[in-house]
Amino acid sequence: MRMRAAGTAVLGALALSVLAVPAAQAADDHRGDTKISNVVVNGGKPVVVGATGSKTITVSFTATDDSGISWAQAILYHGKDIEHSDSGAVANTSDKRSVCTKVSATKANCKATYTLTARKNLINEVAGGWKVWAIAQGKDTDYTKKENAKTFQAQRLAKLTADASPEPVAKGKTLTVTGGLTRANWNGGTYAGYTGQPVKLQFRKQGASGYTTLKTVKTDSKGRLKTTVKATADGSYRFSFAGTSTTSAVSSAGDFVDVK
């Protein structure tokens, strides 16, 4: 796709052009005592984006050098390495670098925001594991550069519904619970059924604090769910999906059933 080809070229060129250090290659490299640590992406949570939406996240890390930190930068990317990436994001700062705040004579906390947008730098093929490329340079020109300073998940937003019927129902009679699991299609800007996925049917008895799992069912070829259960007591039924590397976890709203 043109977007992916263009994204690779831009990221590769940027990664190499911003480095004011010798041997500016994409692979890990260092000189002296400069270090990067404590890399955190989106507060440690997956980055979940809907079919037509975007998500702005914060990436932070600590940089240290015995002379102090001159500057630092992080780039987010998907692919084997940054030179062969098929999508990515750079910082939302004018110079595309992180903003570093001095903590001590040798340490700085650096952070910046990044935006991931459906149908732009997010397409279905790049859902899943992403990486953080990072560099920091000391005031004495020592530096460290990491190809994979941190990994994180960029996930397609999932939606899940549940409907139990009939309502009300006689005790001991059969309830049919139907629903559907869909997820964001970043390529088309819509939601589509997520097929062949295990989903838990859960029940919370009226007055109980949480749900218990009754059974696991799989979505059909259109992402639909259908199963039956015996009605035993008043309470709420819901479906719950644990998520995958490419798709967010989600639980439906509970559907309350009055048992007569």
Rank of each mutant, 00 (worst) to 15 (best):
T195D: 12
T195Y: 04
G196P: 10
G196T: 08
G196K: 04
G196N: 13
Q197V: 13
P198G: 11
P198D: 10
P198K: 01
P198I: 03
V199P: 12
V199Q: 07
K200T: 10
K200D: 15
L201H: 03
L201T: 07
L201W: 02
Q202D: 09
Q202P: 08
F203M: 13
R204W: 03
R204L: 06
K205E: 15
K205A: 15
K205S: 14
K205I: 12
Q206K: 15
G207P: 10
A208N: 13
A208D: 15
A208K: 07
A208H: 10
S209C: 04
G210V: 04
Y211E: 08
Y211H: 06
T212R: 06
T213S: 13
T213M: 06
T213L: 05
T213Q: 09
T213C: 08
L214S: 05
L214K: 05
K215R: 07
T216V: 02
T216F: 03
T216P: 12
K218F: 07
T219A: 09
T219Y: 02
T219W: 00
D220H: 00
S221I: 03
S221N: 03
S221L: 00
S221K: 04
K222F: 01
K222W: 01
G223T: 03
G223P: 12
G223H: 00
G223M: 02
R224M: 06
R224E: 15
L225T: 00
L225P: 00
K226A: 14
K226Q: 14
T227L: 01
T227M: 01
T228S: 15
K230T: 15
K230P: 00
K230W: 06
K230C: 05
A231R: 05
A231Y: 09
T232G: 03
A233W: 05
A233D: 13
A233Q: 11
A233Y: 08
D234F: 03
D234C: 02
D234H: 01
D234L: 00
G235N: 01
G235T: 00
G235D: 02
G235C: 01
G235S: 04
S236T: 10
S236M: 05
S236L: 05
S236R: 11
S236V: 07
Y237V: 14
R238H: 03
R238A: 15
R238T: 07
R238V: 03
F239S: 14
F239P: 09
F239M: 12
F239N: 14
S240P: 05
S240A: 14
F241A: 10
F241S: 06
T244M: 05
S245E: 14
S245P: 06
T246V: 09
T247Q: 08
T247S: 13
